Computed example of a mutant assay.
Amino acid sequence: MTTFYFVRHGKTELNLSLRFQGGDIDSPLLPIGIEQAIQAGRYLSDISFDVVAVSTQKRAMDTANYILKENNFLDGLTLQYHDNLREIKFGKREGVEIDHTDEQTDHLRTRPDLYDPTAFMGETIDSLVTRSTQTIEKLSEEYPDGKVLIVAHGVLLITLINSLVGKEKAKWREGGPLANTSITILEKENNQKNYTIKSFNDSSYQTKNEEA
């Protein structure tokens, strides 16, 4: 059985300003985002991961680094970086302030099966899930009895997780958005197709912080 620990990156400047932050843009972690990552690392410090797979975007790589600095089992750990774990691409909307009255924004959040980013040259939900699933399936094959840490992004993770557990496309955003540095644990039995959720969007380990 492979156990996956999915972690969203820490809070960034673009998160705070409520702007689209997709696969073609990056933004520094806020001080609270760094603290969130450190706390997540402490929470996971006694788990001996076999591999850590990280998006090639800086906010995810920085989050992973802060998490791993707290881990007690770094000897022999394999660290991988994957373009397939980058956030969904928002095309011309990258960095633009989010308009919550926009139809496609609403579809992205509530009905991903209706989401059509053609007008702003964005990436489709199907493309996002296909590429991210390829990476997860490959890791489950390579580490059939392993513990795998995934550090990536909000839209990618919630759609990927819901797809992996067998939900229909219309429900791929169900339960989202994931909190920054929240931890979701999935298990994959070697002879099973779908994954089982053991813990979802857990940020209970975080101490309260007044900074937004």
Rank of each mutant, 00 (worst) to 15 (best):
T181Y: 11
P177Y: 00
E137A: 10
D126Y: 04
K188E: 00
T207P: 09
L178R: 00
N180I: 07
T130Q: 07
S199K: 15
D126F: 11
G154T: 13
S199L: 15
I150P: 03
V151M: 01
L156Q: 03
V155T: 13
L178T: 07
F200G: 03
L178Y: 04
Y143Q: 07
L128P: 05
A170H: 11
Q206Y: 11
T130E: 06
R131V: 12
G176E: 13
I158V: 12
K171S: 15
T196M: 04
D145Y: 14
I183V: 12
S199H: 08
L128C: 09
N190D: 12
K169R: 14
K138R: 07
S182H: 10
D145K: 13
G166E: 00
K169W: 04
Q134A: 14
S182V: 03
K198M: 01
L157N: 15
I185Y: 02
K147Q: 11
T124C: 09
V129T: 00
F200H: 01
P177S: 01
N191W: 08
K171F: 10
F200N: 12
K171L: 13
V151L: 12
I197E: 01
A179S: 13
K208V: 12
N190S: 09
I136Q: 12
V148N: 06
K171C: 05
W172H: 09
I161Q: 05
K198D: 02
D202E: 07
T207C: 13
T124Q: 09
I183D: 01
L149N: 08
L139Y: 03
E137H: 09
K169A: 05
A152I: 03
E137Y: 08
I136R: 05
G146H: 02
K193P: 11
L149D: 02
K167E: 13
I185H: 00
T135L: 03
S182I: 04
S182W: 03
S182C: 06
K169Q: 15
K167N: 14
I185Q: 00
Y143W: 13
L178G: 07
T207Q: 09
I197Q: 00
V165W: 01
N201K: 02
D145N: 15
E141F: 10
T184F: 00
L128G: 11
E174C: 10
